[in-house]
């Protein structure tokens, strides 16, 4: 989880990743940021993220992202 927060801070700093649950809905993360995050997550956690997973439900909060990473690691 810490690693994830580090990645998020690096790509899009100045957002409250601990608490914010509307990263997509509020436009804090745009498409470029989302794809950068995906790229880092794929490298860091050795998972494959497909288009069907790139949905607001998975990206609206750091928690949701972490849950997705866990799910994909198990597959």
């Amino acid at each position: 989880m810490d690693k994830l927060l580090e990645i998020l801070e690096d790509i899009q700093p100045d957002a409250d990743y601990e608490n914010c649950e509307t990263l997509i809905d509020d436009g804090i993360l745009d498409s470029f940021a989302i794809l950068s995050i995906v790229s880092e997550l794929q490298d860091e956690f050795e998972i494959t993220i497909t288009p069907s997973q790139v949905i607001p439900e998975n990206f609206n909060s750091a928690k949701a992202l972490w849950a997705m990473v866990q799910r994909l690691k198990e597959d």
């Binding site: 498409s31 794809l35 995906v38 790229s39 794929q42 490298d43 993220i49 497909t50 288009p51 790139v54």
Partner: peptide
């Protein structure tokens, strides 16, 4: 375009390879 071209192209296999190379 974003949902049906941009994301699928960005997340495709060959783009992943290009990404590794670029990094």
């Amino acid at each position: 375009m974003k949902d049906y071209v941009f994301y699928p192209v960005s997340l495709s296999g060959w783009m992943k390879h290009f990404s590794k190379f670029a990094k």
